[in-house]
Amino acid sequence: MSETDWTQEITDGTGSDGNASAAASELAFSSLPAFVEDFFLKVCLRHEVSAWCPKWWDHEEAVLRLEALWDAFEALRREPGTGTAVWIRDYLDPTVAALTSPETTPFRGCDARRGAHHVGRALTADAPPPGMFVVHTIEDEDASSAETGDGAAKTQR
């Protein structure tokens, strides 16, 4: 059983330059690799799974899902009462299922036992017909304020 209380601050509050950083000191983990290697794999994913890739960081979908899981963990770990339970039910369990299920895993072409590593090709999409969707543009505040009179962003069609 781990002696670490994951609901409390566990960083030393210093950045790589040795200076304290308020934002970093509030995080339990200083980076996504630290979260994955020191917590996700050691605490949350301790059982044998049908799909995992040691080069998880090379799979964009896995990085996206793990980053969202880490963000949710950092937000919910200090919530009194059911914060951790909510994180497990709403974030951890669906993420583990998506990453390790043979049907949904981004690691389909990988097999750590055989040393196989394959990053799938991104899907492509045809451009929609012109004018089908609204295109939002960000212009500097002065131009936008002058045209709309209220400082709102201008929308092009």
Rank of each mutant, 00 (worst) to 15 (best):
S2D: 14
E3T: 14
E3M: 09
E3Y: 04
D5T: 04
D5W: 06
T7M: 06
T7Y: 01
Q8T: 06
E9C: 04
E9G: 09
I10K: 01
G13D: 02
T14N: 05
D17P: 04
G18D: 02
G18F: 01
N19F: 12
N19R: 15
N19C: 11
A20M: 09
A23N: 10
S25V: 00
E26Y: 05
A28I: 01
S30K: 05
S31T: 05
L32H: 02
L32Y: 04
A34G: 03
A34D: 14
V36D: 03
E37R: 11
F39I: 00
L41K: 12
L41Q: 12
K42W: 00
C44I: 03
A51L: 07
C53R: 08
P54H: 13
K55H: 12
W57L: 06
E60P: 07
A62R: 00
R65P: 04
E67I: 04
E67A: 14
A68L: 08
W70E: 14
A72N: 08
L76H: 03
R78T: 04
R78Q: 13
G81D: 10
T82V: 09
T82Y: 13
T82I: 08
G83F: 04
A85C: 03
A85P: 00
D90C: 11
Y91F: 13
L92W: 15
D93L: 14
P94V: 01
T95D: 06
L99T: 08
L99M: 07
L99R: 10
E103S: 10
E103F: 05
E103V: 05
T105C: 03
P106N: 06
P106Q: 05
G109Q: 03
A112C: 08
A112T: 08
R114A: 14
G115T: 03
V119F: 07
G120P: 11
A122E: 09
L123K: 08
T124V: 14
D126H: 10
P128Q: 10
P128E: 11
P129I: 00
P130Q: 11
M132E: 13
F133V: 13
I138R: 15
I138D: 14
I138K: 13
E139W: 15
E141Q: 11
A143R: 08
A143L: 15
A143F: 13
S145C: 10
A146T: 14
D150H: 09
A152T: 12
R157V: 13
